[in-house]
């Protein structure tokens, strides 16, 4: 009764609003909001210098640099190749296309631990791919970048795909009629339409990479100051029973994630506007 009287904008003949919303809020509260608030409340008990000591030691700062840097580089690579993969899947026909299209989602479906050990084995010094690469990949920051590229791969392809599929051929024909070369049509007409979706895909891949743990820890080698990612540092602190320190770093990462979430929401709104919806 409470919800339908205070929240409903329009009367509805359908039943079950109170029950459904009540259950939704209760479940959301118990599973997500109360536990998440525990992290912020725990950090709120820290003094400012203590918080700063926990989140800004050289070792933690090095882990931010690696986590954010490798995530950014991986998202960038995914944006570039994701655009090409998406273009090829939408515009061209080639044998095995449907299988390739379905397999793009593999990083969503494959457990991160499995991806982690597979990539480590591949890029080890005597691995299938590692033996052809002149420098070390496994157990270095490059390995972190490889793992993050793997797990971020579907985001750009899957956000671009519907936009590219919806693109009307007429505007390309119009550009061609007006004398544009194919490259001009792409760079001046098609690419600007794809930009918001491309940025959304980039941001999604970046956000996912920031928090990634399972696929990275196997290939990273986890050396402090060199190849130690921030999520691993949280676990290390937990294992040393430094709950406050772990939570303080977690709060920094949560704030970064929420800022990105807002940016992604804004980008998605821009994508819809650009598509004229």
């Amino acid at each position: 009764m409470l919800f339908s009287r205070t929240l409903l904008r329009r009367h509805s003949v359908l039943p079950g609003f109170d029950l459904a919303l009540g259950f939704t809020l209760l479940y959301l509260g118990f599973i997500v909001l109360i536990p998440l608030s525990a992290a912020f409340l725990k950090t709120a008990t820290m003094s400012w210098p203590a918080f700063w000591d926990a989140v800004a030691t050289p070792r933690v700062l090095a882990s931010y640099r690696l986590t954010f840097g490798a995530s950014f580089a991986a998202a960038l690579v995914n944006a570039f190749f994701g655009l090409i993969v998406c273009w090829v899947l939408v515009r061209y026909d080639f044998p095995g296309k449907r299988i390739v299209d379905a397999l793009v989602d593999l990083p969503f479906a494959l457990p991160t631990a499995v991806a982690g050990i597979a990539l480590t084995a591949l890029y080890a010094k005597n691995g299938w791919l590692g033996q052809f690469i002149p420098f070390k990949v496994s157990f270095t920051p490059v390995g972190v970048f490889v793992a993050l590229t793997f797990i971020g791969l579907p985001f750009v392809v899957r956000t671009l795909q519907p936009v590219l599929e919806d693109l009307h051929k007429e505007i390309e024909e119009a550009a061609a009629t007006l004398g544009a070369s194919r490259w001009q049509t792409f760079s001046r007409v098609i690419f600007p339409i794809l930009t918001p979706a491309l940025l959304t895909g980039f941001a999604l891949a970046f956000a996912r990479a920031l928090g990634e743990y399972g696929s990275v820890i196997f290939i990273a080698g986890n050396m402090p100051m060199i190849s130690e990612i921030t999520p691993l540092l949280i676990i290390t602190k937990l294992e040393q029973y430094d709950y406050t320190g772990a939570t303080a770093i977690a709060v920094v990462m949560l704030v970064a994630a929420f800022v990105l979430l807002l940016a992604i929401n804004a980008l998605q709104a821009w994508t819809r506007k650009r598509q004229g919806r």
């Binding site: 525990a38 949280i234 977690a250 990462m253």
Partner: peptide, 13 residues
């Protein structure tokens, strides 16, 4: 948008 590690941590808290 929450890191898996943090998803575990909040239940420990």
């Amino acid at each position: 948008s929450v890191s898996p590690v943090i998803s575990g941590l909040i239940y420990v808290l």
